[in-house]
């Protein structure tokens, strides 16, 4: 009964401003993701490398060995193909990182683990929780680009060689921009699909994006696909965000032909903004009722 006489009231006023609380909350969420990444670092590395390794192994090692060449006969033609493929492999890895580290994790947290319910109780606006995911996904995308490029450029048959030419100015701006855009895509997909529909997401979104995203060919070569005078495939793939990522990677890592940079930069910025705003809207809708 003594409780009500002089109640020991734990502070009933918010101790800190929203800005201060949000700032530390963001730091804590990033710290948490870093700790989780460190715990599963080998899983991360293997998951990131398996697809690029297999692509390079089959296309750049097995195919030349068995004489089933892509890009024409002879080492020169095969090397040209390698020069197209290696940046594409980096681009696709950045995209998969966005999908894997955000979309799959988020679908799970929204779905059966319901962890998101706790995460959004962080003392900050809920959009910041989603933005933190994108920041963390961007970082993982950059990390995957950094480990995929060396692996992709060394897995090939003898005589086949990707001609890399590193443009550091582009690498330091385009790769982060691509990682942000692809993390935004991850946020949008993760907040759009129910966990039980993840198969659909892979089948109808990820696969078409991957195969029609200029990973295995450069945009200018698609001009050859046309009906009458209409370059229909070239027109169609312009809607694919991965195309700009891959063409950007080509510009950053090689001297191969690529889309004009004054197209690549603004379009990637546009996709990043679009994905983020739709993703944040979905996130809010999923969290609040």
């Amino acid at each position: 009964m003594a409780v009500t006489e002089t109640p020991h009231v734990i502070g009933t006023r918010p101790p800190r401003s929203v800005a201060a609380a949000s700032w530390t909350a963001l730091g804590a969420l990033l710290l948490r993701d870093a700790v989780v990444l460190r715990k599963h670092v080998w899983e991360f590395v293997l998951r990131t490398l398996i697809q690029p390794f297999l692509l390079c192994f089959v296309f750049l090692f097995v195919f030349p060995k068995i004489g089933q060449n892509i890009g024409g006969r002879g080492n020169a033609a095969e090397s040209n193909f390698a020069t197209i493929l290696v940046p594409g492999v980096v681009g696709i890895s950045v995209m998969f990182q966005g999908v894997q580290s955000i979309a799959l994790a988020m679908a799970q947290e929204f779905g059966f683990t319901r962890e998101i319910e706790d995460r959004v109780q962080a003392p900050c606006p809920i959009w910041l929780v989603a933005v933190e995911k994108v920041i963390s996904g961007t970082f993982q995308g950059l990390l995957s680009a950094a480990i995929v490029l060396p692996i992709a450029s060394v897995v090939h048959a003898s005589g086949v060689q990707a001609h890399l030419a590193l443009h550091w100015g582009l690498i330091l701006t385009l790769v982060p921009l691509a990682a942000v855009a692809m993390s935004g895509l991850g946020l949008l997909l993760g907040t759009s699909f129910e966990p039980r529909n993840i198969g659909l997401m892979f089948g109808f979104i990820i696969l078409p994006i991957t195969f029609l995203g200029g990973t295995y060919y450069s945009f200018d070569r698609l001009a050859a696909v046309r009906i009458g005078g209409f370059h229909w495939l070239q027109t169609l793939v312009l809607a694919n965000p991965l195309l700009y990522v891959n063409e950007g990677m080509r510009a950053a890592f090689t001297a191969a032909p690529h889309l004009h940079l004054y197209v690549v930069y603004p379009v990637l910025v546009g996709f990043a903004v679009l994905f983020m705003s739709l993703g944040l809207r979905n996130f809010r809708r999923r969290v609040l009722s």
């Binding site: 009933t12 006023r13 918010p14 101790p15 800190r16 929203v18 609380a21 949000s22 948490r32 700790v35 989780v36 715990k39 599963h40 683990t113 319901r114 962890e115 998101i116 319910e117 706790d118 109780q121 962080a122 003392p123 900050c124 606006p125 809920i126």
Partner: peptide, 26 residues
């Protein structure tokens, strides 16, 4: 002011919302 109000609330929901990637202490 939801962000401000969240500073004052501790919540135990119906479902288990523990972070599966972290151990108990974490």
């Amino acid at each position: 002011h939801p962000a401000l109000a969240k500073q004052l609330s501790g919540i135990v929901s119906q479902q288990n919302t523990l972070d599966r990637q972290l151990n108990v202490w974490e």
